[in-house]
């Protein structure tokens, strides 16, 4: 079959004009416009560019939601099987628009989409995780080289075939870790790598170390006596029976449990769901992980105003950082609504 492809480009590549025409609203043109010629030639009879959507870079940047909405509508009206955007080369607003359009197409129309740009285009950092971006030169002189990988990757996506490695296929790494089988077992690779490292020969690590981001410290708690303190834990303390089925490892959810009136976490009512440490001690007395008993005591003594009625818990065992970050954001919203002043987060 011949796939129906819609091409997205800006006002400049559509021949409408330069910066003075950047306010161009989205419009649909039948068939091929501008750089679509080269793409169509590369597709051969496997895919046809049925229409081209054009939008001014300035208009898109200033009206992102509205423009996206209109563009998605135009693409949907073409009964497209896939969308190809750009190449945007090193044009920042164009690259951002291409990335945003491809992401919206994937999310809302559930069809393949890809774009192409220069690695330093700001659109790369914004959208590389969401969409495939083929690497190009920094100017339109690189069009001829960009077209073959754009066409071949889009066809692979349309046919549901698996993509090879970024360097082989010509796209920018999305930052996702993907499993593969190498030629040699890990121990052999380690020994060879060590020999190279000792000889000062070049070698390639299989896992480049991540750089963790930093958050500035929040201001200190000013008034302890009047403070509402909340407890959060990654130690997996849950009501016995784990009512929300939080996974022992790689948790996909967190629990929110009411401890109003509870002055001690007893082994009759609480246990740990964590699969990464010996549960004997936490199961015997969950206060060893989540110190409710002493906090309740201090609350009674008036050292602080209130222990928050709800505690939040998950299992920090092989749980992806991205997942934990999502839990953190969601929990923070709930803590704000509950007028909590400070948080004690315990980990095992």
């Amino acid at each position: 079959m011949t796939y129906r492809v819609v091409h997205y480009i800006n006002q400049f590549f559509a021949g409408i004009g330069g910066e003075e025409q950047a306010g161009q609203k989205p419009l649909l043109k039948e068939g091929i416009v501008g750089p679509g010629q080269a793409l169509a030639a590369e597709f051969g009879d496997k895919a046809t560019i049925v229409a081209t959507v054009v939008c001014g870079d300035g208009y898109f940047a200033e009206n992102m939601d509205e423009a996206t909405e209109t563009i998605i509508g135009l693409i949907a009206s073409c009964k497209a099987d896939a969308v190809i955007a750009g190449p945007a080369f090193n044009a920042g607003r164009y690259g951002t628009a291409c990335g945003a359009v491809c992401t919206a197409v994937k999310d809302r129309l559930a069809i393949p989409a890809l774009t192409a740009m220069y690695p330093e285009n700001p659109g790369v950092d914004l959208f590389r995780k969401e969409t495939i971006i083929v690497e190009t030169a920094d100017s339109a002189r690189g069009l001829r080289k960009a077209v073959p990988p754009m066409a071949s990757i889009l066809l692979k996506l349309l046919e549901g075939r698996e993509l090879g490695l970024p360097a082989e296929e010509g796209y920018l790494p999305q930052g996702l870790r993907k499993n593969l089988f190498r030629a040699e077992p890990g121990a052999e690779r380690a020994a060879s790598m060590l020999v190279k490292k000792l000889r000062g020969e070049p070698f390639e690590t299989e896992y480049p170390m991540p750089v963790f981001d930093r958050v500035p410290p929040a201001p200190a708690l000013k008034d302890l006596k009047g403070a509402r303190i909340a407890l959060v834990t990654s130690g997996g303390i849950v009501p016995k029976g784990n009512p929300d089925h939080i996974e022992a490892s790689s948790a996909s959810r967190y629990g929110e449990y009411d401890i109003s009136g509870v002055s001690d976490l007893t082994s009759a009512d609480y246990a740990t769901a964590h699969g990464g440490y010996d549960p004997t001690y936490a199961d015997g007395d969950a206060d060893r992980v989540l110190p409710v008993d002493v906090l309740r005591e201090m609350e009674r003594e008036g050292i602080f105003a209130k222990l928050h009625d709800l505690f939040y818990t998950t299992v920090g065992n092989g749980t992806p950082v991205a997942m934990a970050a999502r839990f953190g954001r969601e929990i923070a919203v709930k803590l704000r609504e509950a007028a909590v002043d400070a948080v004690i987060l315990t980990s095992t």
């Binding site: 870790r177 890990g186 490292k197 690590t205 299989e206 896992y207 991540p210 790689s250």
Partner: peptide, 24 residues
């Protein structure tokens, strides 16, 4: 590595620039 089922997360709980040679 424990990078999430989509591979998008950080793989290790700890890291250091000295770890220049890692077999995954």
């Amino acid at each position: 590595e424990f990078a999430g089922s989509d591979g998008a997360s950080q793989s290790l709980a700890d890291a250091a620039p000295e770890a220049t040679a890692v077999v995954s």
